[in-house]
Write a protein that binds this DNA or RNA. Sequence first.
DNA 1: AGATGTTTAGCCGCGC
DNA 2: GCGCGGCTAAACATCT
Length: 462
Amino acid sequence: MPVLSSPDTANRFRERWLDQAAGSGSAPLDDSLTSLHWLQNFSILSADPERLAGTGPEYPSSQHHLLLRRLGFPRTGTDSPSSPPAGDTAAAAGMPRYPGSPATSGSQTTAAPPPRFSPLPAPGFPVQAGPQVEVDYRSNPKVKPPYSYASLICMAMQASKQPKVTLSTIYSWITDNFCYYRHAEPSWQNSIRHNLSLNKCFKKVPRQKDEPGKGGFWQIDPQYADMFVNGIFKRRRMSANHYGGSAAARQSKLVEGFPSSCPHQAGAKRKQLSSTDCSKLMRSTESPLLTMEANKADILKGDFDLGSVFDDVLGGGCSTFEDLDLNTALSSLGCEVEASMNGRHHAAGLGRWCGSVDVTHYPSCSYLDLSTASMDSTVGVSQPLQRPQLEQDQLLQGQHQLQQLDESATLFGEQPADAALQPWEEIKEEPQVIPLTLDPGFGLYEGFFTEMQQWERVESYL
DNA sequence: AGATGTTTAGCCGCGC
DNA sequence: GCGCGGCTAAACATCT
């Protein structure tokens, strides 16, 4: 993670951040740098359930890929499905599946580069000389996207402007954006369902009696929103010495904070608690409110205390911003900015995974969802926006923030070259993400947004 | 019947 | 080696 090392920077941050907190206006905008027109062409728009009937416009695959990458969808090695894909697989095609997992089938030896969004190889993956080949997952049916199902679900949810999505919406978004799944055996859908059910990060929202349709809705449980960093599901173990404290202690906290660490979900599921016991245990404490209350103490105690972090940083206790992964924080906060233009709500995906420093670096990205509904929607409450001026202002604000993030991305891009050699270092930091104490009903987008915006602006004040 | 949701089982790769 | 995370597969239940 790029760092800000100068105390001056911290002071600048404090000055600007505090100024903003005091109500000072925003800086003039430069539309040329903040145009979001490209977003409107992003195929993620098709995630809009109303457009998922398969009649949506098709965008050139190259454009899709470019946009997808511009959105910052990172290729994540650790989230790459580790099992042979279903259907016509990359493995079957003899294509090494990323990362570092050579094709398991040697029957066909078609040489192909590993699927990747970024030209950087993953650790353990042999560096290949020559031109970097990128894979367009939208049009290439042979390469399985290197995203875990949880990540795919998260993407679909994020891409949707809805605070809750149906299973079919998730299916549609995935098939719409990843050609592989259009041709794959439908077993992947089973895996999606399995993931939704088993993964505590996803919460089912029962369909109202008067709501037509089948099945319920799904959303990311705000309690676990921080598990999705850069839109990618992160539940990897932390490095032993990443924090100042003991890894064991943090692991303990992680377990406390994330029931997903229950042996049933974890690998020990068959060795410690029986799945039934665990399931019961988990469900007995499943209420986000309960668990939130239970976790609140720890969270407030400073598992990641923003105030103390700033105190450290601003007070010089922290010589650098290394310990403050702003992008992680931002993404943990699920940065959302309302942005609809001319009273017209743009469809899903009016947002971006921002903070892409450089395609040659594995960027630390934050998803800036500019969809209006996300912020204004609460579960079961649809609140049409009729605040054109506010929307304009917020759009401008969002654009401004994007601009600032881009600028800060440039700033962050001035990292040592060797930073690119360890692109996965950020992943090790993922447990550092902030445990959210949010309204479990996606009220987070309302109640939390005020705080979130300030976090979102953190970089803009540097 | 088909879609959706839950649960169980087992395999694999990776990190510690 | 062990634990964990991710995946596939399958059985089963429930709902539309």
